[in-house]
Design a protein around this nucleic acid. Structure first.
Lengths: 231, 231
DNA sequence: ACGAAATGAGAGCGGTGCTCTTGATTCCGA
DNA sequence: TCGGAATCAAGAGCACCGCTCTCATTTCGT
């Protein structure tokens, strides 16, 4: 359906990619705040006004970068899950967590773009919701596999959370018990709490051996969603 | 020591406060990205150049707002702890967590300023580290009180984390067992993971009954640092 | 009372996002 | 094939930004 019709369409695709590449370079170098359309255009040897043929506004460019960042992080998580397909659930879980952390540390500004303050507008554009869900889906899948065999022991839900838990489970993973669905969402947010604190410098002069710290915390996270240390 | 010497010094204090107030207003309305020194000066009826007599740069103004935000949040946490002095440790813990979340939801842009992407520079100015630690200290204190009576049962630390745990405990709370110190730092980051996901919209169309969800998650967090449901 | 320091206002520099117009190029259907 | 329509690059320009410099005024300490 999106067949390239001619030289013009081909050029458009290439130029769009070149703009995003250059923008990503500037993002990695200076952060989202200092990303400037004029500087991108300058680096690409084109007039700044021409750039608006490809991205209607700076926010649209940033949104494209956000989607790419979500996709890149999601791909890393999926790759980690695939590479550890034969391992025990808890080891797969920690592998996925490690992959998320490694990507975040390698691309701090892109990470900040997606898990820091939402800079463009207050509500995320619709196009970002699907890519944003990829890491969460990997975590769910990892837990689902573990749950396939025998049931996982989780502490009972407090009374007040029962309706929300049922609704949440129906939405994100209908075949999972509500208590597990809740635990997964909690662990999901806590994983990014750990990563964000490290990337954003909150652990400065607090945690030194961050590899060991994260490994232990991620393992605990996995146990909190019912993954057992052995067997 | 910082006695007001005359009308001039008094005016300087008042104007500095007025600038910060107006800046905070714009921050709350539009976010840090759209905070403009010129707009602040315009609103205050002064020349934009005059504003530089009070804050050498935009980043310095933001830094002042960051410190104030840390202090405001820290005060809320301390107040919650003080107001629940007689309650059981786990209830105190959840009260502190609730206070943090409530402040964050009430001041999303200020929260983003301190726990979102670090916008001014890459490393936080020295003046921000003490205010930034206040919430953490409240959490530590809450756990310390609980620990006063009998020892808290915590799962043993993995071998690889022992040295870091010992160092960390010596740094943040010498009288606490290393396992508890680690658990506290983990819970600290996870608390802000929960709050950040809610404030930054990651729970959009995922978690609906966020009050109940957060209450349960915060309670679990307290249990993870060894606070018992009853007793 | 007077010199020094602090303060305010204005002009101006280089940068930004974005719009509008103009002219050239490419596409596509009659 | 050819001519209208769509697309595109470029330049000028607007309003805004952070920040600096200069210069007049005001306040302070001695």
């Amino acid at each position: 359906m999106t067949t390239v019709r001619g030289a013009r369409a081909r050029a458009r695709i290439e130029i769009t990619a070149a703009i995003k590449d250059e923008a990503r370079t500037q993002l990695a170098a200076e952060g989202a705040a200092k990303l400037s359309l004029r500087a991108v255009a300058r680096e690409l040897g084109m007039a700044s006004s021409a750039l608006y043929r490809y991205f209607p506004s700076r926010d649209d460019l940033l949104t494209a970068l956000i989607i790419d960042a979500y996709d890149a992080l999601g791909a890393e998580a999926e790759k980690a899950a695939a590479d550890t397909a034969g391992l025990r659930p808890l080891d797969r879980w920690t592998a996925v967590c490690r992959a998320v952390r490694a990507w975040a540390l390698a691309h701090p500004h892109e990470y900040a773009l997606i898990y820091g303050s939402p800079v463009p507008g207050y509500t995320a554009p619709q196009d970002t919701v699907a890519p944003a869900a990829r890491v969460g889906l990997v975590l769910i899948e990892t837990a689902r596999r573990a749950h396939g065999g025998e049931g996982i022991a989780l502490p009972p839900l407090p009374e007040a959370l029962r309706p929300e838990a049922a609704r949440l489970a129906a939405d994100v993973a209908p075949d999972l018990p509500p208590a597990l669905a809740v635990a997964l969402v909690v662990a999901w947010s806590q994983l990014f709490g750990l990563v964000s604190f490290e990337v954003f410098g909150q652990f400065h002069r607090v945690v030194e051996d961050r590899d060991a710290f994260f490994a232990a915390a991620a393992r605990r996270l996995g146990q909190d969603v019912g993954l057992l240390p052995r067997g």
